[in-house]
Amino acid sequence: MGGGTIFFVASKVLGLLARPETWLFLALVIALRRLAQGRVGAARRWLGGAALAVLLLGAWPVGDLVLGPLEARYPPRPALSRVDGIIVLSGAEEAELSRLWGMPELNGAGERLFAGLALARQFPDARVVVTGGSGRLGGARSTEAEVAAAVLTDAGLERSRLVLETRSRNTWENAIFSRPLAKPRPGETWVLVTSAWHMPRAMGVFCAAGWPVVPYPVDQRSGMLGLRPEWELWEHGDALRRGVKEWVGLLAYGLSGRTAECGVPPG
């Protein structure tokens, strides 16, 4: 098993441990264990803690606390006067659902593709790199880049402008596998399109890969903090999961030398 595969598997395990629902499930398991041991008081404390966590998560967008700093790192819609290439990171595509239904299926990160398409229309001479294989441990029979290409071409983008990278399983591989295909030349302006909460790690990875890019963050998720009048357990939990996972990813990529700091080239 190569180093890239070990890192990929380890990142999946860390991602699972970072999910809030994992910790809630463990709290319930511990409570059941305490009940089986006859330790009713301890079981009540674990159950009470889990119930309080669910209440706070449903009523208060705690995910904004971890997503907000990530999304504020780079301003949206940077001023661009020249663009030679556009890189769209995968993550918006549901590859297996697309294969099952015979048509492109997207998730909540679809703004990545819409923004990439808008930039491609604004700069008609720019090449468009769509990068993404499958992030599943067992792989997949279709790739995210292929689904993205179908969406973009259906929307009118010429297939000849697209460069597809279909091997990558994570952000690091997005950069190192796409660069030989794109062949960026010195002095060119390349724009990186991905979700705002993912942009700090993506920028660090592309800098470490020696490919300076202009950040174009989309798909912002954080909003105003405070109690909300509606019950949004799933929405708040999803934001918390994304934020914690991304901070863990930043730490793991930093410790493994897969990120670097570099200046943002002018657009």
Rank of each mutant, 00 (worst) to 15 (best):
Q122R: 15
L70M: 04
R112L: 02
L89D: 01
T166C: 11
E158T: 14
P104V: 09
R127L: 13
V129P: 11
Y74V: 03
D154W: 11
V163Y: 09
L100A: 05
E144N: 09
A118G: 02
P104T: 04
L157M: 13
L119C: 04
R82V: 07
A126M: 10
V83Y: 10
G135V: 02
A140M: 09
L164E: 14
P75E: 02
V163T: 15
V147F: 08
E94S: 10
V62L: 15
E111Y: 04
P104Y: 02
I87A: 06
G135Q: 05
F114E: 09
E144T: 07
E144G: 04
P124R: 13
A148G: 14
S98K: 06
I87W: 01
L80I: 06
A140R: 12
L67F: 08
D125E: 14
A145M: 13
A150P: 09
A79K: 05
G110A: 14
D154L: 13
G102S: 13
G139V: 05
L119F: 08
F123W: 11
L119G: 05
E96Q: 08
G102W: 10
V129C: 15
T143C: 09
R136H: 07
G135L: 01
L89P: 01
R159W: 11
A148R: 01
A145Q: 12
A92I: 03
L70S: 01
A115E: 07
P104M: 10
P124Y: 11
V151S: 09
R127S: 15
E105L: 11
P78C: 01
G135P: 01
R99I: 08
T143Y: 08
L80P: 05
L113H: 02
G102K: 12
R121N: 09
E105H: 15
G132K: 05
E146G: 14
G133I: 07
A155I: 09
